[in-house]
């Protein structure tokens, strides 16, 4: 369970690097090949996936699913901090509904 929790936080951090790396990409191939932000983003994604595989092979999915979805909340905070994206009512409503839905889903999966 701790593995999955750590994995979801790491995964949301990975998304930050993917986003900042995505803006460095241009027509020249070196902008992808030597893009350390993209590499770090993919790397952290891979690390979080390994943790998921480890965590999910032992734990119960109904408990683990809601933990994974915490990464959506983390992303709202990271996006505000690093990309100055406003935390709007639309985003809070959307992510709130998604979290609630995932909790219902996991209750139904017991």
């Amino acid at each position: 369970m701790v593995l999955v929790l750590v994995g979801s936080v790491i995964g949301s951090v990975g998304a930050i690097f993917l986003k900042s790396g995505a803006h460095q990409v241009n027509r020249h191939w070196t902008s992808i090949a030597f893009n350390w932000r993209l590499a770090l983003g993919v790397g952290t994604y891979l690390a979080s996936s390994v943790l998921f595989v480890k965590g999910m092979s032992n734990g119960e999915l109904s408990v683990l699913f809601p933990l994974v979805s915490l990464s959506y909340v983390c992303t709202l905070v990271w996006s505000r901090l690093f990309f100055h994206e406003a935390i709007t009512k639309v985003k809070l409503t959307g992510v709130g509904l998604i979290l609630a839905g995932i909790i219902f889903l996991s209750l139904g999966s017991r």
């Binding site: 639309v90 985003k91 959307g94 992510v95 509904l97 839905g101 219902f104 889903l105 209750l107 139904g108």
Partner: peptide, 17 residues
Amino acid sequence: PFKIVGLLVIISGVAVL
């Protein structure tokens, strides 16, 4: 019922975003 409600709520959240 839990799963159906969950799916509908997730879809509405995605639609809002």
